[in-house]
Design a protein around this nucleic acid. Structure first.
Lengths: 352, 352
DNA sequence: TAGCCTAGTCGAATCGATTCGATCGAATCG
DNA sequence: CGATTCGATCGAATCGATTCGACTAGGCTA
């Protein structure tokens, strides 16, 4: 009659109804202390009566000093970040791993302006994916906030823990494969080198000015074998970009390469399509090498020769590092290796 | 000397150093009250000295009763959910819209078991994407927690606000287009009908047992025009699935359809590829109709005839609904309409 | 010069749970 | 049978900020 019932029941209310103290009620819910079965059931029954849905996570995270949230800093537009299957697979591995401690992922688009989420979002740890533009700034903010960070394929040394891939070495291995087949005229199809994503020829200048660690390393690996290979910089890791690059590289028969090293499978698939369009047989007249080893949707019946990187394990490793950082365990950086998968898109160059 | 400096500075510490009360310091940070410039600067300087990175979001959300987090309930595996470009685009629109109130997205994989995140994750509101299997249960949990929900393309009536699409009508319009071109032998390539995703012929039984609202509606739309069209149920919205379905449908020349209604652009693109492989010319010998109108990567130079749905606006609408729910404004359900885009993958059937 | 208003600041209560140490009764042990 | 121990429960402090009402000077009006 007199008590105006509060909109949401609280643990205190449940405790009162059950005739126990709030501390006991808390114990009954968390199961982390000795509580008699009778009491626990009384508390649970009271909760049922009141429609109490469990402890408020906000209060929990204040008191516990932990929110169960891991931030993932991605480039500004979700739709761009998630078009890359490797990113998605990593996220999947990451989610799986941190799920084991009951944490979940908060998406933090790293737009320069706006409500600077990197600075204000609640999280226990953050994972940064190497390709974000403002990586260093974001890291600075996070470190000031005292939030541990894991950096995936960023420049070495960034973040509390790094997860890296043998981009250069792997590409070199792929290039060596092409060389061993006898290719001498090889062209590169390169991932975006910097934040302003625009299509352009791969010039020495563009190469120097590039900020994408991954793209640079993969160029270097190719250059280890083919120091003078020309190339095209794309505007993103999409089949369509690969196709455009392919059309451009294959346009003039007189200086047409006999092999293309693409920096991603999507780009490679696009090059294959361009070749199809131009009536160039793959692999007889053109070899195409990819990178990633994701099941590219829509390239069947080809089986891309590519450098298979362990995308899901990479994500899992990042997740494990997060868990380690949060539990105070040792969190060593990890380096992953790619494996050359020999598909049917590479072959010796056509005899001329 | 005597005060063991606490690991992380707090607002109270900053206030003490600045010689003001905590309340004033809070005002200085949030800017929501009258504070003299001199004081504000003193507080900011003190924060700088102490390395204070701003109010703790955990405490803020407890006090404010709001966390700035919007949950997105997706199917269990991130890598599956995000392979669908429509989902990703919706997410993008959603993120954009809720970003306007400084909220960000928490990914909640809806696995049946495990730490039931739907029940424990902190969030101010939740968005459910229609295709999740345990939709009803999740909604029940959320409602008990008092968390407002927005359901995208779920069965009508679910969630506090619904965002829907004219799946049936749109498909009907597409089918009518095919009929007007003169097609009589039409086959369907259908999205997964239920949680157990397996390839199978589209039987009346499978159709009845289906739980996917979207797939069912799109079938009904096609049936409005072609009541007896045969079909194939795929295991997911992927090109490869479309290709497999296409190979199957087009295998025997004697009962080969002259047109295929695919329930997504990816499936449609796969059907086109299958036709290419079999030497069937599109659109001369086979018309293909898609759904979604996403820029399918890797289908160029075709321009798919498809029902363009406003994916990003759908996400934005969901975001706007969330904002409305949180600000107490009116949050009406929204229905979106698709537009038939006439590309170059449909044409009159070949004269025989 | 009395009266009033306003900008600036402060105190104290509050958000909802967790957790440590204390308490109390009963059971066990010698 | 007294002392010890253990299990169950409770009190009270605490996590870190926000916010409402109260209070104090000045400045302004009449």
């Amino acid at each position: 009659m007199s008590t105006p019932r509060s909109p949401r029941p609280t643990l205190a209310g449940v405790a009162r109804l059950a005739g126990v103290s709030p501390s006991t009620a808390s114990l009954a819910f968390s199961g982390s202390g000795p509580v008699s079965d009778a009491t626990r059931e009384r508390v649970l029954a009271a909760a049922e009566t009141l429609g109490y849905a469990g402890p408020d996570p906000r209060a929990q995270s204040l008191r516990r000093g932990r929110s169960g949230i891991v931030g993932v800093v991605i480039e500004d537009r979700i739709r761009d970040a998630f078009r890359d299957p490797v990113t998605v697979q990593m996220l999947d591995g990451l989610s799986e791993e941190i799920g084991s401690i009951g944490a979940s992922l908060l998406l933090i688009p790293d737009t320069g302006e706006g409500p600077a989420d990197v600075g204000t979002a609640p999280m226990d740890a953050a994972v940064l994916i190497g390709c974000t533009p403002r990586l260093a700034e974001s890291l600075a903010i996070l470190s000031r906030r005292g939030i541990p960070t894991v950096a995936i394929e960023a420049d070495p040394g960034l973040g509390d823990v790094g997860v890296s891939l043998d981009n250069r070495q792997a590409t070199r291995r792929g290039a060596e494969h092409l060389r061993s087949l006898g290719h001498t005229m090889v062209a590169l199809v390169v991932l975006p080198l910097s934040a302003d994503r625009s299509r352009s020829p791969l010039t020495a200048e563009a190469e120097r000015a590039g900020t994408s660690h991954v793209a640079r390393e993969r160029i270097l690996g190719a250059r280890d074998v083919y120091p003078d290979a020309p190339g095209v910089v794309t505007a993103g890791s999409f089949m369509e970009e690969g196709r455009l690059a392919g059309l451009q590289l294959l346009a003039r028969p007189e200086d047409r390469p006999t092999a293309v090293i693409a920096q991603s499978d999507l780009l490679a698939a696009g090059v294959v399509r361009a070749a199809e369009e131009l009536g160039i047989a793959v692999p007889q007249q053109l070899s195409v090498l990819g990178f990633d080893g994701v099941r590219v949707d829509g390239i069947a019946p080809y089986d891309l020769t590519t450098l298979v990187q362990p995308a899901v394990p990479k994500g899992r490793a990042a997740g494990a590092a997060v868990v380690a950082l949060l539990t105070g365990a040792d969190a060593p950086s990890v380096a992953f290796e790619s494996v050359l998968h020999l598909g049917n898109t590479t072959a010796p160059p056509a005899a001329r």
